[in-house]
Write a protein that binds this DNA or RNA. Structure first.
Lengths: 169, 169
DNA sequence: CAGTATGTTCAGTTTAAACTGTACGAAAAA
DNA sequence: TTTTTCGTACAGTTTAAACTGAACATACTG
C-alpha cells in the first residue's frame, strides 16, 4: 500500500469522524459552524492556528476568529502558548463529557429557575389584584400558573440528577 | 375596580405568562413561533380555531396553519371536535412534563445512538485498513474515535436516567 | 345545484444569520 | 524607525428561515 493511499484512507476516516461528531456537538446548542470548528480542533488533537483552521475548513480567517471566540466564551477551547510560535494556538478541551454535560445542564437549570421566578412574580401579581376579581377566568389563570411553575420544578429536578458537576457518581 | 381594569390586569398577567412560558418551551428545541403558539394554546386552555390564534398572535392564518402542523407532528397539540363548530379546533396537550421531557430525551437518545453507530463503523474501517498502516497518526485517530464513542455512551446513560417514560419514579 | 366558509399550497417578500474581504491597530522583526 | 505579521472590527453580500397574500380545493349550507 502506497503512502498516498494511506493518506487518502486516513483523511477519509478523519473526515467522517469530524462530520459525525460535529452533529453530536450541535445538539449541545452550538451552531453548525461552531460545532464543526470544535470537532475539527478536537480530532486534530494538536493546537491549531487560525490559518490552519481556515485552511482545514475552507472558510475565511474572520469566521475562524469569531468562531473561536464563541468557543472560548463557552469554555470549550483554550489558547495555548508554544515556544517559538507567534500565531495564537487553540486547542479543544479534552474532558468532553464533563465540559459539555455540565455546561449544558447549567444552561437548563439557570433558564428554568429564571423563568420559574418570573412566573412566580406573575402569580403574585395576580393574587394581589384578584381580591377584587372573582371570575372563573382568574381561577383558570392561577391554576395554569401553578401547573407551569410545577413544570419548571420538575425540569430542574430532572436535570439536577444528571449534573456531572454534583458528584452523584 | 371596574370591569375594564380587571380585564386589563388579566390580559397583562396572561401576556406575561405566555411570554415567559414560551421561552421555556423554546428550550425543548421548538422555534420561537412554535413555542409562542403552543404557549398561547396551553394557557388559553380552551380549544382554539386558526382564526382565533391568528387574532391572538397578530399573524397570518397561514403561519398558524403551518405552526399547528408542526405541533401536531410533535404530538404536543391535538385536534378536537366540538358540536356545531365547523372550524378545526386545536388544544394543547395538558400533560406537559411527560410529553416534553420524554420526547426531548428520546430525540437525544436516538441521535446519540445513530451517531455512535456511525463512529463505530468509521472505527471499523480504520481497523480493517490499518494492518498496513503503522503511523502515530492512525493510533491517534483510533484513540480519538474511542473517546468519542465513549462520550456517546455516557450521554445515552445520562439521558436514560431521567427518561420519564421508563418509570424510575 | 350555486354559493360560501375553511384549510392549505405556492410564490414572493421580509428578516435574520453566516460568511467574506478590506482595512485598521497592535505587536514583532528587521 | 520602518516593515511585516497577526488578529479583529466593520460593512457588504450571500444564504436560509419566517412570514404573508392570493389562488386553489374541499367540504359545508341553503
Amino acid at each position: 500500500m502506497s503512502e498516498t493511499e494511506n493518506n487518502s484512507i486516513m483523511s477519509e476516516v478523519q473526515y467522517h469522524a469530524i462530520t459525525e461528531f460535529s452533529k453530536t456537538i450541535e445538539m449541545f446548542s452550538l451552531t453548525p459552524s461552531e460545532a464543526l470548528l470544535f470537532s475539527t480542533l478536537y480530532i486534530e488533537g494538536e493546537p491549531m492556528t487560525l490559518d490552519e483552521m481556515s485552511e482545514a475548513l475552507a472558510k475565511s480567517k474572520t469566521s475562524m476568529s469569531t468562531g473561536i471566540r464563541s468557543l472560548l466564551d463557552l469554555n470549550l477551547v483554550e489558547r495555548v502558548w508554544k515556544k517559538g510560535v507567534r500565531k495564537d494556538l487553540y486547542t479543544a478541551n479534552s474532558d468532553l463529557f464533563n465540559k459539555f454535560m455540565s455546561s449544558y445542564i447549567h444552561k437548563w437549570l439557570d433558564a428554568a429557575n429564571r423563568q420559574k421566578h418570573s412566573l412566580e412574580e406573575t402569580r403574585l401579581l395576580l393574587k394581589k389584584e384578584r381580591k377584587e376579581i372573582r371570575t372563573g377566568e382568574a381561577d383558570h389563570l392561577e391554576e395554569k400558573l401553578n401547573e407551569m411553575i410545577n413544570f419548571h420544578c420538575l425540569i430542574s429536578k430532572a436535570f439536577s440528577e444528571i449534573d456531572p458537576s454534583t458528584s452523584d457518581s
